[in-house]
Amino acid sequence: MNLAVPPGGLGNALAIGAGTGSLFEDTAQLGMPQLCLGGLSEAWLLKELGHRHWMLLARLAGHAAPDFRDVDGAPVYAAFCALSIRDAAFGVLGENDRLTLHSDLMRVSRTQFLSRHRLTAKGRAMGTVELVSTFIRRSATGNHAVARVAIETLPPPLASPAAGLAGLAADMRAERMDTYKDFDLRRRTTTEAVEIEPCPAQDFNGAGFLYFPSFIAFVDRAEWQFETCRAPRATTIHRDVFFYGNVDPGEKVRVSRHDTRRGEGRLAHHCRLERASDGVRLADAFTLRRV
């Protein structure tokens, strides 16, 4: 699982909405920490939005800080089940541009929450990101097993988990879908694969879990290895990632590319991330990039 542990935020412009969730709006002047070679850094963005999601959960619960506990007093974290990036224009952003993030949060089931983040700059939309999380308690034996936890002090659900990204995440986890984005999910052949050993100092978060932006970074590293000549400065247009599991420090992640499509300045692919030691599914990533 992929835990939203605060990496540091943009600012303190936070307002709380009643019942519907929370609203968080702020503007950042983009510089080197927020940028990459192709424009806006997706890694920075996802860390920032993970932090916002976590802080909005705290405010929604009436906490001054995001400190959640189960009935036994053990720490409880928000593990991400899915993320979706839509209509992104990261490549047009550069140094000193001002990016505004509009974020809101709602409860969609007993244990799940969805945050939606709208990006604007230069007077136009720059994309939308959705994140679905569930509260979990970690296992004493490591990152391979966790238990879902309900936080009863939060407002009741406002939407059905069967709808939208939360419903898709449940279907993907249960392998109830044969296709997604026209990719054949029953396809077992792999065109290319790369193994990556996550670095504790770079890829894990403060809770000891492989952080969810690291999964996307591994997909991009695999893409770079497979598509160096064709996509030297690829930028994301759409990306959907569904998370199923995690690894302990010292374990390797295998990124396998199951299908690829190229044409008209676009590169699309479906990558599966697995624990290299036992082949357990960790995530499925469906990506459309501008090349």
Rank of each mutant, 00 (worst) to 15 (best):
L14F: 14
E95F: 15
A140M: 11
D104H: 14
R173I: 01
D284A: 07
P156Y: 06
D240M: 06
A150F: 05
A78C: 07
F90A: 05
A82H: 10
L154W: 07
A140L: 15
I216V: 15
V255R: 03
L210E: 01
A145C: 13
A150Y: 05
R257H: 01
T260N: 10
G31T: 03
E274I: 08
D248Y: 06
I85P: 03
L46N: 02
R221A: 11
D171Q: 15
L40Q: 04
F242Q: 05
L23C: 08
L23F: 11
T235P: 00
R257C: 12
P232M: 09
G245E: 02
L185A: 06
A43S: 12
R257Q: 08
F135G: 02
F80K: 08
S256K: 09
E25C: 10
Y211I: 02
A217K: 10
P200V: 10
A162T: 14
R262N: 08
E48Q: 10
W44N: 00
G17K: 11
C81Q: 13
W54P: 00
F218D: 01
G265M: 05
H144S: 11
T27E: 12
L210I: 01
E25Y: 11
D104N: 15
D182R: 13
W54G: 03
L267V: 05
F226A: 14
D178G: 15
R261C: 07
D203F: 03
A285G: 10
A89Y: 02
A58R: 08
A174Y: 07
S22E: 11
A276M: 04
K181D: 13
M1P: 09
A147H: 13
L35V: 01
A201E: 12
I136L: 07
M172E: 01
L83P: 00
C199D: 14
A74P: 00
P232S: 00
D184P: 06
D171E: 15
L14T: 12
T100D: 05
R59F: 09
P33A: 08
R98C: 12
F242H: 00
T100P: 06
L114S: 01
R124K: 12
K122S: 07
N96M: 15
R107S: 04
T235A: 03
P156H: 11
A121G: 00
D240E: 15
L45P: 02
D70I: 07
D104L: 10
M106P: 00
P198A: 08
I216F: 09
L60Y: 03
A166P: 06
T20Y: 14
R272I: 12
R86M: 09
Y244S: 13
I151R: 08
H144Y: 09
H51R: 11
T153P: 04
D278S: 06
A150R: 14
R186Y: 11
L35D: 02
H102E: 13
L3S: 01
W44E: 02
L23I: 14
S139Q: 03
I237G: 00
F242M: 02
L45H: 08
L119K: 06
A268C: 13
K252T: 13
P157W: 04
R138W: 09
G9H: 09
V149H: 07
L168Y: 01
G39Y: 01
C81F: 02
C199T: 11
T153G: 13
L101H: 02
T179C: 12
R290I: 05
